[in-house]
Write a protein that binds this DNA or RNA. Structure first.
Length: 484
RNA sequence: GGCCCGGUGGUCAAGCGGUUAAGACACCGCCCUUUCACGGCGGCUUCACGAGUUCGAAUCUCGUCCGGGUCACCA
């Protein structure tokens, strides 16, 4: 394999839930690879047999596909370094672990979970006491022959320190005495995440290990493993965490209590895929150029590792909403109507509606698609409203002239040959002119009568157009009746 | 608690020894206007603190404080 080719991997464990933090990691991994003409690999890390979730792998495939993070290799698309699911690689890890045992860099540990637990409870922060680190060879052999369950642990150096380099955080040094003799192979024969990760990243020729910075302090263990095997250490890229704001003003790792944190949750709340991607790309990364709107393609063209920030970023739903609104406004009306269809269905049912007019009033106003039904509810059914709604100071309307306006409007509109935005527009404006009143004086009562609410998306003409002649006229007459 | 990382407005952030310390979101005001939006214009708020180094520090060093992460047969 050509060493110059950048290869990154997204290595999620299938939990059935795509947290935005994970999604951002995947995005950056993709962008780092693609911005340098590299390859992006998907690997499923399902070594925890107790946590398997049905259908979870499919969620990963679907999310990546929907977001547009196309992987070059993976369980579903194949590749030269498969299999890409760790459970299918199970037998491959043991020889590596045993190699380290032979070389004196790892050892069998027969301690029971109970012992470890009590150890944990006894002295706080104690950790494993390396009880089995120096068991006599005969004893190990005897225990092994008896079939005693065991794990394989890595022998950490007792003294000195380990320094590694991270592209975003620089050199980081950790005292070796802080490092626990971590488990490589679990008693069920599966490797631990840490071990499988190193072995697979090496075998799959991953050049850049990109992950959240919660792994920063365990990175020396990785390096020690690479060293033990004599493998080349990858480039580390640790990402700042995404935080959520708590009610008391403090922040902590973004979690459910902060609101929607899953990609699917965000979609259900009416956010667009492109807006989510654009927003999370900017959470912890800043482009050279001072701009914010990027397609995935444009992100790949502009991404560079030195723009990654060191400090944690608070997930701001307000900003996400702004991105969403921007994307909605930028859509072609047809495309907008298509994604809005399920929400429009709630309002109009099977009734036909003028899509063009609807899109024109909705697109500048909708921030989250989920707002649509509420925003348009007055179309579904005319609300019961008080006559006082007709009184508006700025439009110079009162109960008397509102009746007058409605009467005139009804008469004019009844004979309107064509019920379109253009003709409504022209007719109503010229009517106001003829009556010698400002536009608002005529249009306020018309809009109130047509909608039955004081605040509406769009103006009187749009509402009339969408309502259609019969319903529009019916509502205007109802309004007039309210004033007599 | 030990260790690790961070700290520019409420939030995301630019900045890499000399700037009037960008920009965006949010908020406030004005304009536009057919209500609400959109759009336009303007405003508000920031270098955590203290010592150094330097002619000069948001930028470099140290300390303090604050915040976060991590200490599993989870990943």
């Amino acid at each position: 394999m050509d060493k110059r080719v950048v290869r990154t991997r997204f290595a999620p464990s299938p939990t059935g839930f795509m947290h935005v933090g994970n999604l951002r990691t995947a995005l950056y991994e993709y962008l780092i690879a693609k911005s340098q003409g590299g390859q992006f690999v998907l690997r499923i890390e399902d070594t925890d047999q107790e946590r398997l979730v049905e259908g979870a792998v499919q969620v990963i495939y679907n999310t990546l596909a929907q977001v547009g993070l196309k992987h070059d290799e993976g369980p579903d698309v194949g590749g030269a370094f498969g299999p890409y699911i760790q459970s299918e690689r199970k037998n491959l890890y043991r020889p590596y672990a045993e190699q380290l045992v032979r070389e004196g860099k790892a050892y069998y540990c027969f301690c029971t979970k109970e012992r470890l637990e009590s150890l944990h409870n006894e002295k706080e922060g104690g950790g494993y006491d390396r009880h089995c680190r120096n068991l006599p060879e005969e004893e190990v052999k005897a225990l092994l022959e008896k079939g005693t369950p065991y794990v394989i642990r890595q022998k950490m150096p007792l003294e000195g320190s380990t320094t590694f380099h991270d592209v975003v955080y620089g050199d980081i040094t950790i005292e070796n005495k802080e490092l626990e003799d971590q488990i490589l192979l679990k008693s069920d024969g599966y490797p631990t995440y840490n071990f499988a990760n190193v072995v697979d990243d090496h075998l799959m020729h991953i050049t850049h290990v990109v992950r959240g910075c919660e792994y920063l302090t365990s990175t020396p263990k990785y390096n020690l493993l690479y060293e033990a095997f004599g493998w080349e250490v990858p480039t580390y890229v640790h990402l700042p965490l995404i935080m959520g704001k708590n009610e008391d003003g403090s922040v902590s790792k973004l979690s459910k209590r902060h609101g929607a944190t899953g990609f699917a949750d965000l979609l259900a709340e009416g956010y667009l895929t492109e807006a989510i991607v654009n927003y999370i790309a900017l959470l912890g990364w800043c482009p050279k150029e001072n701009r914010e709107l990027f397609t995935l393609q444009e992100l790949a063209e502009n991404f560079s590792i030195d723009g990654i920030s060191k400090s944690p970023a608070v997930f701001d739903y307000e900003k996400l909403r702004w991105f969403n609104a921007e994307y909605i406004r930028a859509m072609a009306p047809e495309a907008f109507l298509q994604i809005a269809a399920p929400y429009l269905q709630k309002v109009f049912g099977d009734r036909p509606y003028d899509g063009a007019v609807l899109a024109s009033i909705l697109q500048p106003r909708v921030v989250q698609l989920t707002q649509i039904p509420e925003m348009l509810d007055f179309f579904r059914e005319l609300p019961d409203y008080p006559a006082e709604f007709f009184i508006n100071k700025k439009s110079k309307t009162n109960l008397e002239n509102s009746a007058e306006m409605l009467k005139a409007a009804i008469e004019t509109l009844e004979s309107l040959p064509e019920w379109t935005m253009d003709s409504l527009h022209e007719t109503l404006l010229s009517l106001a002119q003829r009556m010698g009143v400002k536009n608002g004086t005529l249009l306020w009562p018309v809009r109130i009568a047509a909608a039955g609410v004081q605040v509406t998306p769009g103006g009187a003409m749009e509402i009339l157009a969408i309502l259609g002649r019969d319903e529009a006229l019916r509502r205007l007459r109802l309004g007039l009746a309210k004033l007599n």
